[in-house]
Amino acid sequence: MNILIVEDEPNYADTLEMFVDELGYQTIGIAEEGQKALKFFRSKQPDLVLLDINIEGEMSGIDLARIFQAERPTPVIFITSYDDKDTFNKAKETVPSAYLIKPFDPVQLERSMELATLRAYTTSHEEDVFEDNRHVVLAKDFFFVKERNKLVKLMITDILWVSVEDKYCILHTENKKFVIRQSLKELADKLNPQEFVQTHRSHIVNIKKVEDIDLSQFTIAINGEEVPLGKSYKDNLIHRLQTL
């Protein structure tokens, strides 16, 4: 998370920078007056602003917060020595994420920062603009197969055949094999029955990839390899094929 610090007291500015660093965040700029703060804000686009109210120059921290929210709504935490109600009410108009009084409590500041970013970047950005889409399968012509920490795209049309070993299904393609922990029945439910057919108790083939069927040897040739054809599956396969 990138943090902009706007503070004209050097000791407080240094303390805040060290605090941000200890939390594992990045300080993208320290500004003691409004114009410099605006320059950092527009060029660095911080995720969060730690903002003093009484700063050098013509603009106050409250003025800056108004500009920030008008240009690019960003979480702002005021850290100020002003604890009067009038200043608080003016600051409240900018809808800050928190209003902390100096000297600030590090634990309170840390929690305020976490809650500010949670509200700003989780609630608003995770709004689902599609209604009731949880049960809609995305793009049914391919799978994403998990390989370690990656999801690898596999076009269904690239599957030559599927075989079973123990509790795993092996998806054979021309150049690669994908191993998934899933039953043959579970996988079959996700395949198009007009293109995939079971030829053995442990095999499913992509009929479009079949090169020939040896009825005497009970084998199916795919990509130069032989896939078994079970006797109990042969009649169903032949019945469903278009033959001349």
Rank of each mutant, 00 (worst) to 15 (best):
residue 91 A to Y: 03
residue 45 Q to H: 13
residue 66 R to K: 14
residue 96 P to V: 06
residue 90 K to T: 07
residue 65 A to D: 06
residue 116 A to R: 03
residue 40 F to W: 07
residue 49 V to C: 11
residue 22 E to K: 14
residue 59 M to T: 02
residue 100 L to R: 00
residue 138 L to T: 04
residue 127 E to A: 09
residue 40 F to V: 05
residue 79 I to C: 06
residue 84 D to G: 04
residue 61 G to V: 01
residue 134 R to K: 10
residue 60 S to N: 06
residue 106 P to F: 07
residue 110 E to S: 12
residue 90 K to E: 15
residue 72 R to T: 11
residue 51 L to W: 04
residue 71 E to A: 10
residue 153 K to V: 00
residue 80 T to C: 01
residue 67 I to R: 08
residue 129 V to Y: 14
residue 148 R to N: 15
residue 77 I to C: 01
residue 91 A to F: 01
residue 88 F to K: 09
residue 76 V to F: 06
residue 114 E to P: 05
residue 149 N to G: 07
residue 102 K to G: 07
residue 127 E to S: 08
residue 113 M to V: 02
residue 128 D to V: 12
residue 123 T to N: 12
residue 128 D to G: 09
residue 35 Q to D: 15
residue 119 R to D: 15
residue 125 H to L: 15
residue 138 L to A: 10
residue 147 E to K: 14
residue 89 N to I: 10
residue 81 S to K: 08
residue 86 D to G: 08
residue 76 V to L: 05
residue 112 S to L: 05
residue 128 D to M: 11
residue 76 V to E: 00
residue 23 L to F: 13
residue 66 R to P: 04
residue 148 R to D: 15
residue 84 D to H: 01
residue 131 E to V: 11
residue 125 H to T: 13
residue 61 G to N: 03
residue 146 K to H: 07
residue 88 F to N: 02
residue 78 F to E: 00
residue 79 I to D: 01
residue 22 E to I: 11
residue 64 L to F: 03
residue 112 S to A: 15
residue 113 M to A: 04
residue 103 P to S: 00
residue 43 S to W: 06
residue 71 E to W: 10
residue 90 K to R: 15
residue 131 E to G: 07
residue 56 E to L: 14
residue 51 L to Y: 06
residue 121 Y to S: 04
residue 34 G to T: 02
residue 102 K to Y: 06
residue 103 P to M: 03
residue 21 D to H: 13
residue 49 V to F: 08
residue 155 M to K: 11
residue 71 E to T: 09
